[in-house]
């Protein structure tokens, strides 16, 4: 009745190692079937990037943690509706985006869009001081010094892979405004990047 290899189940650590090696599609399929361990691997695989993204959008680690948690709860419930399991990463990033933007909307009750949240870093260091930093760190600093709306549009476009129309919808601004904000952000980023280079 019970083949030998059934009784002696594969050690948990070995299954985890196996799953860590599996592609997203396999993990999503197993998650949809109810495999919690597969889901945990997805959480560990994509959670840090989602957290970095949410932190960028929200400017707060604690809130980013909440948003990432909510995102995974939603993901667990909604993964069965994901048509192409191989696209899980983009899909998760999209949920994190929506949830982050929702939080920002909630804050809007207290402030206007232009001066809301995310205090600019107090160190407005000249770009020369940045030379010792890695490219990413330098870029991150330039990004953080952009006006909030420019930065937010840019982040949604670059990290959330949003179209102009989608950004316009998320931020309740006309597409033409989004175009303008992105154009200004792009120009500033390139100018600073070329200067640093």
């Amino acid at each position: 009745m019970f083949p030998a290899n059934r009784g002696a189940a594969v050690p948990d650590s070995q299954i985890r190692a196996l799953l860590e090696h599996a592609d997203d599609r396999t993990l999503v399929e197993r998650t949809v079937d109810g495999d919690i361990r597969a889901f945990e691997v997805l959480v560990r695989r994509h959670g840090p990037l989602m957290r970095a993204y949410a932190t960028r959008i929200l400017g707060s680690n604690d809130e980013a943690d909440d948003v990432v948690q909510e995102t995974f709860i939603t993901a667990w419930a909604k993964l069965p509706t994901l048509e192409n399991p191989a696209l899980a990463k983009g899909w998760l990033m999209r949920i994190v985006s929506h949830k982050s933007i929702d939080r920002i909307r909630a804050r809007r009750h207290h402030s206007s869009l232009d001066n809301l949240d995310v205090p600019a870093p107090d160190h407005h260091s000249p770009i020369t001081a940045v030379e010792a930093l890695s490219r990413s760190e330098a870029l991150s600093q330039v990004l953080s010094e952009l006006p909030t709306n420019q930065r937010r549009c840019w982040e949604l476009k670059e990290f959330g892979d949003y179209s102009y129309a989608e950004i316009a919808e998320e931020l309740d601004l006309p597409v033409s405004t989004i175009r303008g904000l992105l154009a200004r952000a792009r120009k500033t980023l390139i100018r600073e990047m070329e200067a640093w280079r």
């Binding site: 840090p48 990037l49 970095a52 932190t55 960028r56 490219r135 990413s136 870029l139 991150s140």
Partner: peptide, 11 residues
Amino acid sequence: AMSSLLQDEAD
């Protein structure tokens, strides 16, 4: 640079 930025931050 952008595409590596977020990953760098995550790492």
